[in-house]
């Protein structure tokens, strides 16, 4: 989580959601222009050769680290490739690839399997719970910190702490805390006369635990992003509202929330995508268990790829592509609904 969040905060915290959008709009316009005007390609190259040269490394790197794996993944999902039939060289042994193209069979299999629907339902519940709780807490904390008081810097530091610790370290720490027999949480509860809670041993409690840890990890990002948004709301608005006799709740409802719109829409989209694919929290905390009760789509894809033998490359690629498709549909619908409400992007 931490690795992803770092860049987006700058974007969100600055409250300049429009900036990259504007850039994207401009580049698209250039694209269509070149496509329409065939003769202009050479001229565009000649005029803007330095621009092309500048972006070449980025395009190359993106192509290698994103484009190629993506294309390969989509291709594999249309084959019956597994560990036993892909080509490989082990020392002196060369083994030829013998997998073949099977069309959409893998997709039909996965979609017909009730497991897919079960995982999808829990993944959606998990995402909605995590994002809504994280957002609410983040908003509350941001509002509390968006005023002058002694030790504000210290508070901010403390609240950002979960974010500064590498994700897997905090998850392991939580796993120790949650341990039913010797974890600190249950020791404390025992002191209060409450019998041990099966944090990770009971399907419902395990769901609660994974959501709690993910919220704990996600709040700092929300808070920092929303704090940035709050600070970009002009103070005059509040002053004017106060003059008109608006209550605190009215000021929050009619100034703060609209003022945070562009930031909150961005962070909700990002947070949704990350949570949907939050592999480490689930995998390191419960390994999808007890049983398979906390298994989300990505951990299921991992199971297909790495747990079974021979490893099912085609099957896991299929899960991967389906996850990608779901998120793309979500992003499209989300964007469209925003556009309807008059947002620029």
């Amino acid at each position: 989580m931490a690795a992803h969040t770092s860049q987006s905060v700058a974007k969100a915290a600055g409250g300049d959601g429009e900036d990259p959008v504007a850039a994207r709009g401009r580049s698209r316009r250039t694209d269509t222009a070149t496509a329409r005007n065939d003769g202009g390609v050479r001229r565009a190259l000649a005029t803007h050769w330095y621009a092309w040269a500048m972006i070449a490394p980025v395009v190359l790197v993106l192509g290698v680290i994103i484009g190629w794996p993506l294309a390969r993944g989509i291709y594999l999902s249309l084959t019956d490739a597994n560990e036993r039939n892909v080509g490989r060289t082990i020392g002196a042994n060369h083994i030829e690839a013998t997998y073949k193209f099977v069309g959409l069979d893998n997709y039909a299999d996965v979609l017909a399997d009730p497991v897919f629907l079960q995982r999808l339902v829990w993944t959606v519940v998990w995402t909605v719970l995590c994002v809504s709780i994280t957002f609410t807490l983040g908003l509350a904390l941001a509002n509390m910190l968006n005023r002058e008081f002694r030790g504000r810097a210290a508070y901010r530091m403390a609240l950002i702490l979960p974010w500064a610790v590498p994700g897997f370290v905090s998850v392991f720490a939580w796993r120790f805390l949650f341990n039913r027999d010797s974890g600190i949480l249950n020791k404390i509860l025992e002191g209060g006369g409450i019998s041990a809670v099966p944090w990770l041993d009971d399907p419902t409690w395990a769901k609660f635990s994974v959501v709690a840890v993910n919220v704990w990890l996600g709040v700092p990002f929300m808070m920092v992003a929303l704090l940035g948004g709050l600070q970009s709301i002009p103070g005059e608005l509040y002053e004017a509202a106060e003059m008109d006799g608006a209550t605190a709740w009215q000021r929050f409802r009619h100034i703060t929330l609209p003022g945070l719109r562009s930031v909150s829409m961005t962070v909700i989209l990002l947070s949704t995508i990350w949570t949907f694919n939050m592999f480490p929290v689930i995998f390191l905390l419960t390994r999808g268990g007890p049983g398979d009760s906390t298994e989300i789509l990505v951990t299921q894809a991992f199971r297909e790829a790495f747990v079974a033998s021979p490893r099912d490359f085609a099957g896991s690629a299929t899960w991967g592509v389906l996850i990608l498709a779901l998120l793309m549909i979500f992003a499209l619908v989300y964007r469209r609904s925003l556009r309807k409400q008059g947002e620029v992007w």
């Binding site: 041993d201 399907p203 268990g289 007890p290 049983g291 398979d292 009760s293 747990v307 079974a308």
Partner: peptide, 23 residues
């Protein structure tokens, strides 16, 4: 058999469910 090792993971899911009463 080659699949020997991979039987344990799906079995684990069901064993855990059964022993904890989830199924």
């Amino acid at each position: 058999i080659p699949e020997n090792g991979s039987l344990f993971e799906p079995l684990k899911v069901e064993y855990t469910k059964a022993i904890t009463g989830a199924s």
